[in-house]
């Protein structure tokens, strides 16, 4: 398999993001189908395995660390809005 280099990653990441399941659109409650890695690969003329690698890196890299770190306080705040703790 072709090795994923920073250059390849930078070049294709936005296109892979755009066509993947990263943002899922629905008409009513019917999902608009995203593309599979194989379909994205065919469109970008790169191997499907390379698309998979780019997508997997993006899944961790694509959101700033601060958002990951704030996840717990987000859940805590939302939870305490609905569940009042005992005194």
């Amino acid at each position: 398999m072709q090795t994923l280099t920073p250059e390849i990653y930078r070049r294709y990441r936005d296109e892979v993001f755009k066509h993947s399941l990263a943002i899922q659109e629905y008409d009513g409650l019917t999902p608009r189908r995203a593309l599979t890695d194989a379909e994205i690969g065919a469109r970008l003329e790169i191997p499907a395995e390379l698309v998979t690698e780019i997508r997997c890196v993006l899944e961790v890299d694509g959101v700033p660390l601060v958002f990951w770190k704030e996840a717990e306080s987000f859940k805590q705040v939302r939870c305490l809005k609905r569940v009042k703790p005992d005194d």
Binding site: L21, I23, E25, Y26, L29, E59, V63, W68, A71
Partner: peptide, 17 residues
């Protein structure tokens, strides 16, 4: 529901933190 959008990339960062 007329339309909806789910930003799975943000959700997974929160849900899978």
């Amino acid at each position: 529901v007329k339309w909806m959008r789910y930003k799975a990339y943000l959700c997974q960062a929160r849900a899978r933190g």
